[in-house]
């Protein structure tokens, strides 16, 4: 464990909690892409199946359980409890255009052609593009609630910190996983545009609005 990975995990946890609280407190999921949240629930489900087969550390197990529970709770709030506030007209990204290439890529490019390994690879590739429906929805509505931008900031920050974690681990532990690094780079690059808007607008107290 290193400082980049720990702050990365805490940033990820913060994002997940911020979103859950935003929906729960405002009793509304306006501006939130349910499709992205379903994809994240799928990412955690396919990546954390090893919860039942291998124990790595208490931290690892606890965080995985929290992530999975929050992900499904968020999906439930969006499509269940507060579905009246779900903005389906703007959440129209075609997720099959993500899922099909990700499945093909996971089957073709992986570390080992074994079920758990392919599921893990699928999860890594899917996570790198899972935020696209959410970013697409914001570009369609032309704006985002400030709390939603904080959610996206911490979510983007987490994988950015993981990139430094991988540099650290390569240098100090000789650990290197090309699949995770490439997917993590793609994931972080997708946030660059948002990071720019977040830093130049939201941090200056303005509302995040895109030129519609």
């Amino acid at each position: 464990m290193n400082i980049f990975r720990l702050t990365g995990d805490l940033s990820h946890l913060a994002a997940i909690i911020i979103l859950l609280l935003k929906i729960w407190k405002t009793r509304s999921c306006a501006g939130i892409s349910g499709k992205s949240q379903i994809l994240f629930a799928l990412v955690f489900t396919t990546r954390y199946l090893d919860l039942f087969s291998s124990f790595i550390s208490l931290y690892n197990t606890v965080m995985k359980v929290i992530y999975i529970m929050c992900a499904y709770a968020t999906v439930y709030l969006i499509y269940g409890k507060f579905k009246a506030t779900y903005d389906g007209n703007h959440d129209t990204f075609r997720v099959e255009f993500l899922l099909i290439p990700v499945v093909l890529l996971a089957v073709l490019i992986n570390h080992a052609f074994a079920p758990m390994e392919i599921l893990w690879t699928f999860s890594i590739y899917l996570e790198s593009v899972a935020i696209l429906p959410q970013l697409f929805m914001i570009s369609k509505t032309g704006e985002a609630e400030t709390i939603t931008t904080h959610y996206l900031f911490f979510l983007g920050l987490y994988r950015t910190l993981y990139l430094f974690n991988w540099i650290w681990r390569f240098y100090f532990e000789g650990f290197f996983d090309l699949i995770a690094v490439v997917a993590g780079l793609v994931q972080t690059i997708l946030y660059c545009d948002f990071f720019y808007l977040y830093i130049t607008k939201v941090l200056k107290g303005k509302k995040l609005s895109l030129p519609a």
């Binding site: 090893d50 570390h111 996983d177 995770a180």
Partner: peptide
Amino acid sequence: ETASQEKDEL
């Protein structure tokens, strides 16, 4: 293909 290393990251 590098062997699938111990997956200790979240």
